[in-house]
Amino acid sequence: MNEHSHLSWAGPLTDRRNAQERYARAYQPRERHLHPAADFPGYKSTIARAPKQALLSIPQTMSELTGPVFGHNDLAPHDDDMIVNGQVDGEPIGERIIVHGRVLDQNGRGLPNTLVEVWQANAGGRYRHKLEDYLAPLDPNFGGCGRCVTDEDGNYHFRTIRPGAYPWRNYRNSWRPAHIHFSLFGPAFATRLITQMYFEGDPLIPICPIVNAVPDKAGVDAMTALLDTTANTPHDCLAYRFDIVLRGPRQIFFENRPEGL
């Protein structure tokens, strides 16, 4: 099975059977009630940016069933190693960690060749960004920007520095739990997702309004990485595991036969 066999489609565009097959490849509807509400008063910035009109439900056409395809050629050396890729004259400061896991679809199938992009603050909670003015210092040897592509089973792997918590302009005394931002593509425009990864045991998680915009504990737990000592690098890095689920196809095709569902 090649990396795209569950997506490959061949035949003339005018062939009706093929058009129906493509329709059957539509993705599961997004369960918006399990995502954070667009308008969440505890998170002030949503007030002026959440649409007021109901979203228009559109059918998934070729424009939504396709999406950019990335590969290892898009990556530069050390893109997946934030301990190394921002170094100027030494090692970055902070806890050295590995973040790894699997990108799956809702049917539990690993998603190969998917671009995973990450960004984060340094160990002191400071982002390297023009608009950032938190008084914690920049680390001259840390950038906070990484990316990788999943392997044939959907696995990904980064090295980085554990980010610090930071205060933010929301309500008085608002703090973000330590987190890493994750951006994922999956096989189609319809599967695009941006989320954040939190760290097991962080007491700021339950009091963060961005986290609490997710309606239930199971959703918060799904965004919380667990310590995974089996993946540590002894005498070097602790490891955290974070699996990510993207929307799955309504029907799986395997060698042109529908399978399950």
Binding site: H129, H181, Q196
Partner: peptide, 20 residues
């Protein structure tokens, strides 16, 4: 068939440019 739940979305935040 039990479907896994899609990981919840979170805002890309004000520093989204660092990553993207």
């Amino acid at each position: 068939v039990t479907l896994l739940r899609e990981t919840p979305s979170q805002t890309a935040g004000p520093y989204v440019h660092i990553g993207l």
